[in-house]
Design a protein around this nucleic acid. Structure first.
Lengths: 202, 202
DNA sequence: CGATTTTTTGAATCATATCAACGTACGTGG
DNA sequence: CCACGTACGTTGATATGATTCAAAAAATCG
């Protein structure tokens, strides 16, 4: 169908449509990336390390989490095909990250180092704009998610999540989702039971 | 002490120190701003409107909030001297905002319109860098606040807030703080009572 | 298959939400 | 300057849902 077919389809479609890149630009941009295989449970980034590369997921699934004062894992988010992984703050400031980014499945990621990223931004302003607009919209999304957390009950948060990302539940263990929702696994289990009873009645 | 004394001290100090602007640059940059007085309870921005200006608070205090599906106000944040107000998302995308930004005291704000902002970014790259780095660090702060919300009890959130912004409690009604913390005013009242009892014992 | 991970269930406890009511403080207009 | 009304904060009673600790059941991985 096209010259990229079978090579790295996910990243291509992302650059082509929202980024509005031409095929020539895509080829050039991709030459700045390295393909990396990351096995289930392996880490793309560990807290304490400086994030020296950004990764676009071509295949697979990751979780980002941090560890609180009591040693408990707090899941910040999940990431799937075509998403960006890493820690932009550490990537940009060159300071150690507080996040772990771990594969939940055997995954394939296209990585771009800090040096290549700067270089590519220089030679291709369109890429820089692409990257900046990603960072911006991520900011807006985070703020909206914060508002959701602030004003909704766990049940409402759960329903909103299942509506927005139904595929999440096929790929991610429930106790991770519980952490993402800010509740205990037991509570999520009971919440789901409650909801399924309600469903039956209606 | 200096040529700006008494004119608009708050914004000056902000540009001088974290922005590393020279006095000449400060004078030039300020010519792109308009001073605006906003009385208590008046709005800098209303949901539904497009945010056409950013404002640096020189004097006063604001709250930003949105209204949820049930008509309830959700307070996103407060802002004081030297802080930026408005809605960056609406400012950048030219889409209607979902936020209200309302003065909690009679206030004085230095405003820069979209046009002047673009112009100033063009003629003074240092200003653009300043603005972008603000936006970035705001993003990182939002993500950290989200993590706090996700993993901490209301009591921990309250303690963390009072530790970080003790001056908040002198200027903002408690029921607004409750909304910011994502709890009901009654719960905040009881939480504070509980804590003051604990304090006495120790 | 065995071991580990994940999910569910039970029981006791605790915190928050809700609805209602009361007291207090504040500021505006008469 | 006082009085009234509105905004703010507190308290009480009750119900609901989340946490915790413990254990068992179910699913998954190697």
């Amino acid at each position: 169908m096209n010259q990229f077919e079978g090579i790295h389809p996910a990243i291509i479609s992302k650059l082509r449509t929202p980024g509005n890149f031409t095929d020539e630009e895509i080829i050039e941009a991709l030459s700045f990336f390295d393909k990396r295989d990351i096995k289930r449970k392996e880490f793309f980034l560990r807290a304490g390390d400086i994030c020296r590369a950004k990764g676009y997921i071509n295949q697979g699934c990751f979780r980002r989490y941090t560890i609180d004062d009591h040693g408990k894992e707090i899941i910040i988010n999940f990431a799937f095909e075509e998403w960006l992984i890493g820690d932009l703050e550490s990537f940009n400031t060159h300071k150690p990250s507080i996040y772990f980014v771990q594969a939940l499945e055997d995954s394939e990621v296209f990585c771009i180092s800090q040096e290549n990223h700067l270089q590519l931004c220089k030679v291709m302003p369109k890429y820089q704009a692409f990257h900046e607009s990603k960072a911006e919209s991520s900011h807006y999304a985070t703020l909206k998610r914060l508002t959701l957390f602030q004003s909704k009950t766990p049940e409402e948060k759960y329903l909103s999540l299942i509506q927005k990302y139904p595929q999440l539940f096929q790929r991610v263990p429930l106790h991770y989702i519980a952490s993402y929702l800010g509740i205990e696994p037991e509570s999520l289990s009971r919440l789901r039971k409650r909801l399924s009873r309600k469903e039956k009645k209606s």
